[in-house]
């Protein structure tokens, strides 16, 4: 825990939030699993949604996030 605490300012300086940071850590842990469990764990955590920003009461073109490795 202490070593992770020491690294905190660096990931914050890189523009990451705690959520991104913990997601990257979680992905690392998931990749440490042995094979049948690893594929299962990775396929379970799939990201897909479409997000659109609104400017002046109108939606902009939605961006679709659907790659699990993209953070």
């Amino acid at each position: 825990m202490a070593s992770a605490g020491g690294a905190a300012p660096f990931w914050r300086a890189a523009g990451m939030t705690y959520i991104t940071y913990s997601n990257i850590c979680a992905n690392l842990v998931r990749n440490c699993l042995k094979e049948p469990f690893k594929a299962e764990a990775i396929s379970r955590e799939r990201v897909h949604f479409s997000l659109s920003k609104w400017v002046d009461g109108k939606p902009e073109k939605p961006t679709i996030r659907s790659d699990p490795t993209e953070h």
């Binding site: 659109s52 920003k53 609104w54 009461g57 939606p59």
Partner: peptide
């Protein structure tokens, strides 16, 4: 409205998403 998000339930909901 500042953001709208759809198609959240295409895959089973999970924490990463």
């Amino acid at each position: 409205i500042s953001l709208s998000i759809t198609e959240l339930q295409k895959n089973p909901l999970n924490y990463s998403q």
